[in-house]
Design a protein around this nucleic acid. Structure first.
Lengths: 201, 201
DNA sequence: CCTACCGATCGGTAGG
DNA sequence: CCTACCGATCGGTAGG
């Protein structure tokens, strides 16, 4: 007999709550999502949520903090072992693009709702993102120095390359014609094209 | 004497309300902004706002609808009179980039809060934006046919080029080192680079 | 996991 | 332009 103990319905866990929040925050925004909607998505009442989480703000903090740290770890892992600067920029863009294709909901939330994050985390996240941007910028400057790239304003190129990759999160669907890896490869190529001057070759 | 009639304080108008809403929606998001904050920014009480506007939703609708229509009008004006496809893509990207530098708050709201728009306007706005993307895509396809461009996936390039320009709204400051026109010129160059293959020249 | 309920705040209206 | 106030909903707690 399987019905003599606790019924199997519900069975909510912290991970399931985070998953439901991820879905709703991405679709409706942090301020646009009510805790009652997260509860409804899980088939429970709102107060029951608080057995699995601390607060709405904490849910947002975990999503954004985890994603931001993972992006930086991705970057550091990606650029090691590449001799030339073109390969490093290609790898940095590819791994960033890939994350936005494989984790589009996290990416949308990071970019839309970071302003809803409480201090001091908001500042920490912005600092880490700035570090990433400056790393890309230095890569571009390095390539301009050794003749690999040709960019008049490296800051504009680094902003552009990063946002180019971010944009994938707004349209990519895993069941689409192209895989996440294929899309990431194409966008890495776009990133290198932005840094190179096609007319000079 | 200038104090015998209505005191000059306040003097709120529909345009001032829209301006205050533009500022707060851009900084905090539509759902993250309370009508009381808009009123406080204007130095009046919340109910007084309703002498100058219909509803919070109507404020959002006017901002997004007006911006979306202007973007399409920009595009149509920009591409006329250019003989070759490279010039047309350059002009289309430049005018789109320029709008995001000169109207960053409107751009941020369009991109972040379109999902908060009530139907049928939400669908209308999305249709108009899709038309713009398809026009850019056709431009790229045309350039691939006549040998001006080299892109394996024109849809990926059109998405990327548009989002590249959108990203300007997230960092551009009118008092910065580069003018809106200078930034737009650089990003138009990036757009053309994305479409061209630098390694083949 | 639930019901019952908290104070706060929301967008908006009545009426002057 | 204001005060006074509406019903609805918010995130979260008490207590079981």
């Amino acid at each position: 007999m399987t019905t003599h103990s606790h019924p199997p319905r519900a069975a909510v866990s912290p991970d399931l709550v985070r998953e439901a929040a991820l879905d709703l925050f991405a679709r409706q925004g942090y301020h646009g999502t009510a805790m009652s909607e997260i509860a409804a998505a899980l088939g429970i009442r709102t107060p029951s949520l608080y057995n699995h989480m601390q607060s709405k703000q904490q849910l947002l903090a975990e999503i954004i903090d985890g994603t931001t740290r993972a992006v930086w770890a991705d970057y550091e892992a990606a650029i090691t072992g590449h001799a030339d600067v073109t390969s490093r920029l290609h790898a940095a863009a590819e791994v960033y693009a890939l994350r936005h294709a494989t984790h589009p909901r996290e990416a949308v939330i990071v970019n839309r709702d970071v302003s809803s994050l409480a201090e001091p985390l908001r500042t920490e996240v912005r600092t880490l993102r700035r570090r990433h941007e400056r790393a890309i910028r230095r890569l571009i400057q390095e390539g301009c120095t050794d003749g690999s790239f040709s960019v008049t304003e490296p800051a504009l190129a680094s902003f552009g390359i990063l946002e180019l990759c971010v944009s994938i999160a707004h349209w990519f669907r895993p069941d689409g014609r192209l895989s996440a890896e294929q899309v990431a490869a194409h966008y890495a190529e776009f990133a290198v094209r932005i840094a190179c001057d096609g007319h000079e070759r």
